[in-house]
């Protein structure tokens, strides 16, 4: 608990600094907003041209889009220190962390906290809200039809759990990327395949992709487990079971694995100094 308090203190100091430069903060928040909105505009344009996507309606895809965007941007708010770790390393900030008597992972996590990323969170949440406004009446009707109000609650809870699981996966990817930053600064773009690429991929239901891609994003980077599989249950697709609400747990397992990789890389960095 003391660690949690220190994390909040560190984050607080970072936030304090950003608040003192309000003009910058507002600018960056709007910038973040505009990036997320342009992605949303892309989806909207395609829907207005084609009407539906592989049997999913606009609201259903919007729900998927909202979960992924919210998860991604929350992960960016929290784990930004890992996302921008190559800078932390290049500026010698990591060396400074090593001469402090605290875990290096903890310090990297606490080193950055970007309020501006909340601009993007707001787009994700807005998508979720507007999708829910369109979908919840149908879900409520489902719940009444089977006589279980709990079904509606379970669906909404699953949605929150999916977002948390997605956040765990994105954080895990940032941590993997940071581990790679120890070895190379040049080829970090490859991590974008997983982070940005994962975000773009997972904003649509995975069924629209080829089999190889579906498998990669289910068994290697388990976006399918926080997104597609539980989504089928949330949307009440025939053949989907309530226990698929547990799938987002796999996201947390991914995060744990990434953490192990980071610890090994940080140890290696200290021994080679490269």
């Amino acid at each position: 608990m003391r660690a949690a308090r220190l994390y909040l203190r560190c984050a607080g100091v970072a936030v304090q600094g950003q608040l003192s430069r309000r003009y910058n903060l507002v600018l960056l928040a709007f910038g973040q907003l505009s990036i997320a909105i342009s992605a949303l505009v892309g989806v909207t344009l395609l829907f207005s041209r084609f009407g539906s996507l592989a049997g999913y309606s606009f609201s259903e895809v919007l729900l998927c889009f909202g979960v992924t965007q919210t998860a991604f941007s929350l992960a960016e708010v929290v784990a930004r220190g890992f996302d921008s770790f190559s800078q932390v390393l290049a500026q010698g900030e990591f060396d400074r962390m090593l001469v402090r008597p605290r875990g290096s992972m903890f310090q990297v996590l606490a080193s950055r906290m970007e309020l501006a990323r909340l601009g993007r969170v707001s787009v994700g949440l807005a998508c979720l809200a507007s999708a829910l406004a369109a979908l919840v009446p149908g879900w409520a009707a489902d719940a009444i039809a089977v006589g279980q109000a709990g079904l509606l609650v379970l669906r909404l809870a699953t949605l929150a759990f999916m977002t948390a699981g997605g956040m765990a996966i994105f954080s895990g990817i940032f941590i993997l990327g940071a581990s790679l930053a120890f070895i190379t600064t040049d080829s970090l773009e490859i991590v974008n395949v997983l982070s940005d690429g994962g975000r773009e991929t997972a904003q649509y239901p995975l069924t629209i992709y080829e089999r190889a891609m579906r498998r990669f994003f289910t068994f290697v980077v388990p976006f399918g487990c926080v997104n597609y599989l539980p989504l089928e249950f949330v949307l009440g697709r025939p053949g989907s079971a309530p226990w698929s609400a547990c799938f987002p747990l796999v996201g947390f397992a991914f995060l744990a694995a990434s953490t192990a990789v980071w610890n090994a890389s940080a140890r290696r960095y200290v021994s080679t100094g490269s």
Binding site: L28, F30, G31, I35, S38
Partner: peptide
């Protein structure tokens, strides 16, 4: 970043 954040997506 400011110079690019708005121009780039549009």
């Amino acid at each position: 970043q400011a110079g690019f954040l708005f121009v780039a997506p549009v």
